[in-house]
Design a protein around this nucleic acid. Sequence first.
DNA 1: AATGTCAATAAAAACGTTTTTATTTTGTTT
DNA 2: AAACAAAATAAAAACGTTTTTATTGACATT
Lengths: 354, 354
Amino acid sequence: MSDRSRNSRRSPPTIKTLADLSGYSIGTISKALRGSPVVAPATKEAILKIAEEVGYQANARGMALRTGKTYQAAVLMPVTAVSDYEWDGVEYTQILSGLSQSLEGSEYRMSVLTIRDAEDGLEAARRVVDLGLADGLIFSGILQDDPRINFLVDAGFPFVSLGRCRRELDYAHVDVDNEWASHAATQRLISGGHRRIALINPRSELCYAADRVDGFVRAFEEAGLSASIDLIVGGDLSTRFGRESALDLIERNDPPTAFVCVNESTTLGVLSGLRDAGMSIGSDVDVIAYDDINVSAYFTPPITTFYQPIEVLGRTLGQFLLKRMAGEEPGALKQVFRPKLIARQSDDLGKKQV
Amino acid sequence: MSDRSRNSRRSPPTIKTLADLSGYSIGTISKALRGSPVVAPATKEAILKIAEEVGYQANARGMALRTGKTYQAAVLMPVTAVSDYEWDGVEYTQILSGLSQSLEGSEYRMSVLTIRDAEDGLEAARRVVDLGLADGLIFSGILQDDPRINFLVDAGFPFVSLGRCRRELDYAHVDVDNEWASHAATQRLISGGHRRIALINPRSELCYAADRVDGFVRAFEEAGLSASIDLIVGGDLSTRFGRESALDLIERNDPPTAFVCVNESTTLGVLSGLRDAGMSIGSDVDVIAYDDINVSAYFTPPITTFYQPIEVLGRTLGQFLLKRMAGEEPGALKQVFRPKLIARQSDDLGKKQV
DNA sequence: AATGTCAATAAAAACGTTTTTATTTTGTTT
DNA sequence: AAACAAAATAAAAACGTTTTTATTGACATT
């Protein structure tokens, strides 16, 4: 009974091993393991027992070749186009974390492809589909007319986007209600007496940039005022951009008295700029930011934010993707989250509000 | 000549397709594509031409099954153990970004496994090795005696760690010279007249926590002073931890007059705490932080930091891993980076220093 | 002219599955 | 008791590669 006599000690057990051990054929083993109803209950039980004993784990490569599936969910992660390693507040870690939570129980693993922009993302998506690199796709940074969504809908490939495009297409997505949040923030400032409000926005191709503009304008319209659209700026989401925008805006003829920022990194920049311009936030200027990682509480001064934990979005993305990969139609796989207002001392509007 | 006459239009070309088209056998095709020297130059050329024409791309699953390789590099990404979605400043996005840059030209892709801690990471590492989920592994958050390193060295599995353990083992790694940076920061503050210096550290099991303590103590010793080791605190890297530590320390009998922080998120918390305690940073207290994503410049006040772009670490990790996966010994694959001092107004020590 | 060597290629086997098709066994019906 | 159906399992084929082994033909050697 040498070490390699029965089945070699070194290499992990395969279906073949189980067949030898149990006396059943490999086909029957496979069916038993997959829980096929054609195999007799007693047989299935015996096979599962042996599999358990020898610690059998299906070989992913064998399965992949046979089924054509990869058991991988791919994520397109934008590598920050911002130079000099500036913080741009895009917390992909949280997305990945939430996603992996949803994938945990399943047989799917997570692979990450880095992309530079949506166009580059289209390339990546094509590779994923053509080469079968993954069974499903997750991505964000959706444009108003997004090439990836167009391509994937057309190809019938399972995906869930973080964000919506403006075309009337049926696809699974998760999003933040940016129009609503922008409206709410702007309204807050308007009812606090502000008339000249700046909107620090992402690049205008991004769909949610437009959503925020919509909400911003609507708030003015509802108050019977004309919106300060000349104070809308768009750019990368870096702290530097926030700072430079603030410094620029404050120099203008009819400068803003309040700011609505897109996220925490730009907010930090705006605060830095206002401070250096000698403004005191909260008296001279109000800032309302969208909050990503709950850090605004520690700014100087603490900032009123609309808070939406990204991890929750990530979890939902994962749940939806699993369903899509299981063949479910996108119809019901759509969810838009409303961030929660967290009022802090950066504005004094709380008491005047409902 | 129907649509599916020659080779079905729909499914991508395989080696078989090329064999039919070229008249050579599939074995020869395979060798030609891999650049084997046994195939005649003219033959190889002809085959490559056809492959190019039909847009042949090797099927990863077929290769994987046959070779046992996955062409995947796995990354163990810690999912923040910090509750309530606090920022902990662990910029894994940057690591992934740098890593993917290095992997770009290669045939390797990147897969991400989330883990809760080093022990959980050991589980993941076992899965990767036993199930052949990847051909190489990257991870960080190294403990003084790290179970993952022990296991992988023993298993002879290719990996590169971000950080070093304290055991004398031969393994590829990339690290920041934390002892040096901590020493330099502490020395700066000492020569600025500070004697009671706080050290905001990560959890003490982490190896680099010990490194920082070492450098901290050495700076005091070299100045002939006794180190303020009672002012060393360790915890998660959240902003909240920084804030609470600062508030706690400042209340003590013999409070610190300066802070050395582990990263930007804790620094932000320390600043927040000090502000609320009524201290003015730069006059009452100095803060020196290690900088991860270059955001300290925008704090109130701007903070002096030791700056090391994480993306560069990620790139190096990738380069080393490729070499390890190609069979290279770990001997030469070790690099320790010294972060760069960026003096800002949070301390007034610049002029007194060399 | 028979033999051996080498280069080039073909053929076959293998990787570990799943799925389709074939075979055996058992039980039921007439 | 023969014929058939159903259930259970076995056998074979297939997925797309790489690698090992076999075959062919050309050429050099004796």
